[in-house]
Design a protein around this nucleic acid. Structure first.
Length: 583
DNA sequence: GATGCCTGCCC
DNA sequence: ATTCTGC
DNA sequence: GCAGAATGGGCAGGCATC
């Protein structure tokens, strides 16, 4: 885009499309609406229009961040509409959507002057977002707000709604990448699979649309995987058992340890190495030892590897808590010091590219062979993940048990014939995780929901009972696992129990008990118990239990101790089936 | 210089 | 991450 | 079966504020 051009697409045209999309739930209709619209977008503006239409500010690979989210938006709406922040929060609590709150409050503000000649274009909005992203250093927070306010001053209420929604990437038009891929195919008469493939490889639907428009299928076919350009990793679906994994994968599969680490995509080109996270963040600078290992163990001139980055306690040989790995990932200061505390290892498990050739269309079993040919193990520090190919439940089960015994999460299982499908969470690669523990806990506070769930209490703080001090100690929040119906019931049930309000949060009398399952108990820096549940979700509402029957904090500590290989500190009655499940 | 809020991103 | 919902 | 949406704990960094 030329720097002096405002473009010809008006922002209000985009707003109209969003409004049409919201009116229908049908994917086919959404596809048709978008296809119709993007046919007439000038090629120069296509990347921005398409990026905005899927509710993003910048393409996925783009390292820029807008640095504005809910809290800032509340301030901005307050300042521009002359409402107090608490008024804005009040509206937000009701609408569950800051875009809609902006629209409402713009409606009510004294009518500002709109000049026909000064209508906002899509490129105006894009330029301001880019300018906001550029701000850094002292005073930048205020400057970001000022830029956004400047833009909103030129907006109609409806435009304000979508400027805000876009800024916080909360558009809710039901059209994300899946719909957009189909729309691009429809608009420009190209094969949808080619569009998907181009999007997988570039993570840039805007650019994909431009190519589809200008060069058609030939252009799309010309897009290829290449080192130093990150590709979205293939994702795994959950299955409940080894048996199910084998069924899904055709009776015979590759099983590998599932590590509790971070996904890492390793690119090597000549003597250059670059590391990307699952969301395509560049982590190279944070992980210098991984760069060294890659240089030592990969002889090929150019490769792209799919890996897990893990950490093991040198004394016990067991995996360190994920929290410790997290301290490494995006670190830019004290990198060396932290490396000494938590040195990382690399477990490559797939190969996408080697010496000028794409591997992604080869079957997994071929790629695995090529992977092993290309990795010279550096003792425990860098070696391919162990793999077992079997059609026997018992063999895989044995590997699973061993994985758990060693403190890992379970197993991954892979379809031997599957190609590498970037960005897809399909049933070609599945994960089998450990059977979980559960606790019966009291709800002590709740929070109002957003979007589709506005007007319901949708997130619930849960607590265990501290007998010694006759109080409840919080273990975190639970929101997953509730059906819409359960949420509505829960809202009605909790309303009469509310005894205090703090913004979007209400405190309630501990009277409702829920059974919650989780993967792990971890130390918490914020919750009053000092512990928190990892991946909490509802199993059932315990209508059969009274508040005195919730699990005690002693029980929680016991589960923590046992799962961390320590003797339990607390004795006392331990009902069957809980807390005796070593993780 | 310490602290705390906010944002974005690991799982 | 997990889970639910509707196409 | 899949995409989309709504939600979890916890970390570092950036900035504002004290």
């Amino acid at each position: 885009m030329q720097n002096n051009s405002n473009g010809i697409m008006l922002f209000k045209e985009l707003v109209e499309v969003f409004e049409k999309l919201k009116k229908t739930q049908s994917r086919l209709e959404k596809t048709a609406i978008i296809a119709d619209f993007i046919k007439n977008v000038p090629p120069d503006e296509m990347p921005v229009v398409v990026t905005f239409l899927i509710g993003r500010v910048f393409p996925l690979w783009d390292e820029r961040k807008i640095g504005i989210a809910g809290q800032t938006i509340i301030k901005v709406i307050s300042s521009i509409t002359y409402n107090s922040e608490s008024k804005v929060i009040e509206s937000y609590k009701r609408t569950g959507h800051l875009g809609i709150t902006a629209e409402e409050m713009f409606q009510r503000r004294r009518q500002a002057m709109f000049f026909e000649a000064d209508e906002l274009t899509v490129m105006d909005v894009n330029r301001t977002f880019a300018e906001i992203a550029r701000q850094a250093g002292a005073g930048s927070a205020a400057k970001k707000q000022k830029l956004l306010i400047g833009l909103l001053h030129r907006a109609t209420p409806k435009e304000a709604e979508y400027i805000v929604s876009l800024a916080i990437e909360y558009v809710l038009s039901g059209a994300k990448e899946g719909v957009m891929e189909e729309a691009i195919a429809k608009a420009f008469g190209v094969d949808v699979e080619l569009v998907r493939r181009a999007n997988m490889l570039t993570s840039d639907l805007g650019e994909t649309a431009r190519v589809a428009m200008l060069e058609g299928e030939r252009g799309l076919k010309g897009i290829s995987i290449r080192p130093m350009r990150p590709v979205r990793p293939m994702l795994a679906q959950n299955v409940a058992s080894i048996q199910e994994a084998l069924e899904v994968l055709g009776g015979r599969a590759d099983f590998e340890t599932k590590y509790d680490g971070a996904r890492l995509q390793v690119h090597k080109l000549g003597d250059q190495v670059r590391l990307y996270s699952r969301r395509l963040e560049n982590l190279t600078e944070a992980l210098p030892e991984i760069v060294r290992y890659v240089k030592q163990s990969v002889k090929a001139d150019s490769v792209i590897l799919d890996c897990e980055c893990i950490a093991t306690d040198p004394k016990t040989g067991r995996p360190v808590p994920f929290q410790n790995i997290l301290t490494r990932l995006r670190r830019i200061y004290k990198v060396e010091e932290t490396e000494k505390l938590f040195p990382l290892f690399l477990r490559p498990f797939d190969i996408l590219y080697v010496n000028g050739e794409s591997m992604i269309d080869l079957p997994f079993i071929e790629r695995r062979r090529i992977l092993e040919q290309n990795i010279m193990p550096v003792d425990e520090k860098c070696k391919p993940a162990t793999a077992l190919i079997t059609d026997k439940v018992e063999e895989a089960q044995e590997l699973f048990d061993e994985s758990i015994k060693r403190g890992n999460e379970g197993l991954m299982a892979k379809d031997l014939q599957a190609t590498y499908t970037p960005g897809v969470r399909g049933r070609k690669m599945v994960k089998i995780k450990e059977v979980l523990d559960t606790l019966d806990l009291a709800i002590v506070s709740a929070e109002w929901g957003h979007g589709r769930k506005a007007g319901w209490l949708t997130s619930f703080e849960v607590a265990a009972y501290d007998e010694e001090n006759d109080r409840y100690l919080v273990l975190g929040k639970v929101a997953s696992g509730f059906s819409d119906e359960q949420l509505q019931e829960m809202t009605e049930r909790l309303k009469p129990l509310i005894h205090a309000e703090r913004g979007r949060v209400v405190d309630v009398k501990p009277d409702v008990i829920v059974e919650v399952k989780f993967q792990e108990i971890q130390k918490s820096p914020i919750y009053s118990s000092g512990y928190a549940l990892r991946f909490p979700r509802l199993v059932r509402v315990r209508d059969d239990m009274s508040p005195e029957e919730v699990n005690t904090i002693g029980r929680v500590l016991n589960i923590y101790d046992i799962s961390h290989g320590k003797p339990a500190r607390h004795v006392g009655p331990q009902p069957d089936g809980c807390g005796d499940n070593p993780a």
